[in-house]
Design a protein around this nucleic acid. Structure first.
Lengths: 332, 332
DNA sequence: GCCGTTTGTGTAATCGTGTGCACAATCCAT
DNA sequence: ATGGATTGTGCACACGATTACACAAACGGC
């Protein structure tokens, strides 16, 4: 039974075994289809016996619908995206959609990768990564006409976007830090080019401006713990800042460790450190980070909502806006 | 140009445009194929102009080769697997293979999910998850005849496995802890049923047995920080142990925090805590965990090696064994 | 008993490529 | 110049399913 290198049985072969035509086999597997009750039961029984399942590749070719979804992400391990990826994958699976991961990290050729995925006629594309230009994504995928859900707003009928607004939350956080007496702020970016990074920085910059302040220094990391640690040492030592707003939580943890270990400073007493994302790890007892967090569930709900709208060809706003909220810890 | 809902152009249409037959179009895209140099160049130019790319779904149907790889994982966010997932995805992408993620976490119906993926005629299956029985995987995928790479050894010509041996490393770690004077050991499992968990526990149990010791207590978590924290409180309080071997690094960090915060104990002075996996986060300054670690790169090299062997239909041992090594931190 | 409707099934075309076979054209050696 | 080998291209079929259409059988109302 098991272990055999049995070739997969085809619908035509099963048809012969069940004494029907291959069309009838197909109908037996289509829920609402004109077929006799008895015939269907018999076919399903024989199918089970021989381990037959319709070939999804052939079905996709005929259907013009692959039920594949491309997820364009920066990295898989990265906690900042991981929780959302996890949620989304579950939601897709529940809808019988299979996710194909496109990982843009490092120097992999993102464009070639996206072109490869587009040849698989994916039904939808969800772009989490800020490493890829939305215009590139549209150009590559528009021939296959999937919907593209993305962080980055782009006026295009093929793109639905999710706008994130953290300005209020940033304002609350800055308010608290300023009240605590901090004066010299630094922003630690995750990249020096991404769209989302600039947006996040602007939220805080505006909150500072409102109070007659501005960033005294800016550094660039790569969203990693190590880069957070290294850049924070420089910021604290060279620029004498007493508050660091980080591009994500992981760098914030690195920065906090740098403050503690290298310079013997404490939070939030000596310096304030703020993360962004609101990953689960940030709430761990050993981290207890103050962070500008996004409701991951709401975010993924929005993604799924946009996908469904497009699936059902419902016209509607192609953009959903979500707001962030502060999560208070012991670092600011 | 962009934004148009242009339907994807087919090889037959492109053939008309280029004044050749569709067979010639196909040959233009097959690297080693009898076709005139000039013809190919002309076709590629026209193809670029119209944005033509061969349809991978149709190609797969014809080829009997989908270039899709199913990755069966517990979760995406889970750091213990994430690093390996990340590495593997990169290696696959470099080979023009696209990964389909099957996420087994929670109560999703793993079997149905695997059946769904198998209908897509995946070329390979890599099982990272210990939540799924290898026999189930074989039964579901054997009809499509992919190779299955798995942790769990199973004598079956369709399964290649990677055996992990951490007994020596466990021995070194126990040696150090015993020498430090610890006497009462506990094992904190990640699950109460998985194959890999039992294996890991045995490494340490044997090292203890060699010294006339054994586990005084055993607890069961779910690989999460919270469960590590909660179970450690019980173990330390109720069972008065002074050394906890954890099923993974994340639980170890939780246990360490519990020891520190709830009971005011320090490591490695008061109690010893050991993790497993060797994830990057374990080496962060704030964690500095002692852990039994596996070389992730070597692991993924092995996976890729097995995949390639099968791809090239090279016969060879279907099993590769890797050994672990201790990574010393300040918790044991 | 007869005709219109519903139900169930088979036939054949279709989805978009890849490739064996056939055949014309070109090339090279003698 | 000629025969054989090589090169380049088209035709037609296969891959495995779905589905419009046709048609036979069953059914129901009068």
């Amino acid at each position: 039974m098991s272990g055999m290198n049995k070739r997969r049985i085809t619908s035509k072969e099963l048809a012969k075994l069940a004494g029907v035509s291959s069309a009838t086999i197909s109908r037996a597997f289509s829920p609402d289809s004109r077929i006799g009750r008895a015939t269907r039961d018999r076919i399903l029984a024989v199918a089970r016996e021989y381990g037959y399942q319709p070939n999804a590749i052939a079905r996709s070719l005929n259907n013009q619908r692959s039920r594949l979804v491309a997820l364009v992400v920066n990295a898989i391990g990265n906690p900042c995206e991981a929780e959302e990826q996890q949620l989304l994958v579950h939601r897709l699976q529940a809808r019988q959609l299979l996710p194909i991961i496109l990982c843009c990290a490092d120097h992999s050729d993102r464009l070639q990768l996206m072109r490869l995925a587009s040849t698989y006629q994916v039904d939808h594309v969800v772009v989490f990564s800020d490493m890829v230009s939305m215009q590139d994504a549209v150009d590559i995928f528009h021939t296959t006409k999937p919907i593209i859900v993305s962080f980055e707003p782009l006026e295009n009928e093929n793109v639905s976007s999710i706008r994130i607004d953290g300005s209020e939350a940033a304002d609350e956080i800055i308010e608290k830090i300023v009240r605590d007496g901090k004066k010299r702020f630094a922003y630690l970016s995750g990249t020096n080019s991404s769209w989302i990074d600039k947006l996040r920085r602007r939220w805080f910059a505006e909150a500072l401006a409102k109070r007659g302040l501005s960033f005294e220094a800016q550094a660039f990391g790569d969203y990693s713990y190590d880069s957070g640690f290294k850049e924070a040492v420089l910021l604290l030592h060279r620029d004498k800042v007493d508050a660091i707003i980080c591009g994500n939580d992981v760098m914030a943890i690195g920065a906090r460790d740098a403050a503690r270990r290298v310079l013997g400073k404490s939070t939030p007493g000596d310096i304030a450190i703020v993360g962004q994302d609101g990953i689960a790890m940030a709430a761990w007892d050993c981290n207890d980070l103050t962070t500008l967090s996004l409701d991951h569930t709401a975010f993924i709900d929005a993604v799924v909502e946009l996908i469904e709208r497009h699936d059902a060809e419902i016209e509607g706003p192609h953009s959903i806006t979500l707001t962030c909220s502060p999560r208070w810890g012991s670092t600011a």
